[in-house]
Computed example of a mutant assay.
Amino acid sequence: MTHLTLSQTVSQINAGDVVAYPTESVFGLGCDPFNEAAVQKLFHVKQREHTKGLILIAATVEQIAPYVLLHNQAWQQAVLATWPGPVTWILPTKTHLPNWITGGRDTVAVRVSSHPTVQALCLACGHALISTSANPSGQPPAKSCAQVEAYFQNQINCLDGALGNLSKPTQIIDAQTGHILR
């Protein structure tokens, strides 16, 4: 495993690779959401089912605005009151998103993160990224680059950095129903 700089991480994402990086509570795996080969690699290394859907993370609301119904919706104020921050919202899609992102649903999980590394990464890439916990399905999420290496054995490079202050993964809320999913 290689410990990456921010610019190396952006280059790897642009080249279609999957990378690990610190988030609010655990290390995440991410890639370009519209690069199907990269997303398929992510599913493969995680041993994750394609039907679960994935989270899009962003540095700004503008980075996810093209994909979701948010503005002029009943839930707009509740969502924007938590961003940037550690809350993931399930929002209806505005445009068709690939099934590998949505799991075949007409909704998508999105978060505008306040974590400085996530923000810097999304801003440097210029777009939202896929984000899912850095672990094989069924295992505890990685809390360091060393744990990423132990799980993925040189398949994933890591942008090292400090985790945020959350002790558990971010909360997930369905914006249309207000139901807390996690």
Rank of each mutant, 00 (worst) to 15 (best):
V112C: 13
A109R: 05
L166I: 14
Q12L: 15
L129R: 10
V110F: 02
V112A: 12
T132K: 07
A128W: 10
L70I: 10
Q171L: 15
L69H: 10
P66M: 07
L80N: 06
A20N: 07
K168W: 13
R48T: 01
C158A: 05
G126R: 12
L29M: 07
F34Y: 12
P141K: 07
Q119D: 10
P86R: 06
V61K: 10
V26H: 01
V19S: 04
Q119G: 11
E36K: 12
L166F: 14
D174C: 13
R111I: 09
L97D: 06
Y67P: 04
Q147T: 09
N72T: 12
S7Q: 14
I13N: 04
V68W: 01
T23A: 10
P22S: 09
G103C: 08
W100N: 00
F152W: 06
G30D: 07
Q63S: 06
Q119C: 11
L29K: 00
I57H: 02
L129P: 02
M1R: 11
L56H: 06
R48L: 03
I57Y: 04
V87K: 03
A81E: 15
V108Q: 01
E36F: 09
G178A: 10
T102N: 09
W75S: 01
G85W: 02
F34W: 11
Y151S: 01
F43W: 06
V79F: 04
L91Y: 03
T102L: 10
L42C: 05
T82Q: 15
W89Y: 12
T2C: 12
G16W: 07
A74T: 14
A134M: 08
H179F: 13
I57F: 06
L163R: 10
W75C: 03
I130P: 02
P141R: 06
L97V: 01
L4F: 06
G28D: 00
R111L: 08
Y67D: 00
D160E: 15
Q77R: 15
I130L: 11
Q155M: 07
L123K: 08
S133Y: 08
N157R: 10
P84M: 09
V110Q: 02
K94Q: 15
V10Y: 03
P136C: 14
A81R: 15
G161S: 11
V148G: 05
K94F: 09
V18Q: 08
A109H: 00
L70M: 08
I57A: 00
N165H: 14
A74V: 13
P66C: 03
Y21A: 05
W100L: 03
I130Q: 04
Q153N: 15
R182E: 09
A162Y: 13
S137A: 14
W89S: 09
Y21N: 00
L129H: 08
V39D: 04
T23P: 03
L6I: 00
C31V: 12
I55F: 02
C125W: 13
I55E: 03
Q155W: 06
A120N: 01
I156L: 04
P84T: 10
L91R: 05
F43S: 02
P86M: 05
L6M: 07
K52M: 11
C158L: 05
S113Y: 05
V79M: 06
E62I: 07
P136G: 11
Q40P: 09
G103H: 01
Y67L: 02
C125M: 14
P86A: 12
A142H: 05
V18H: 03
I180F: 12
A128G: 13
V19N: 00
V10K: 01
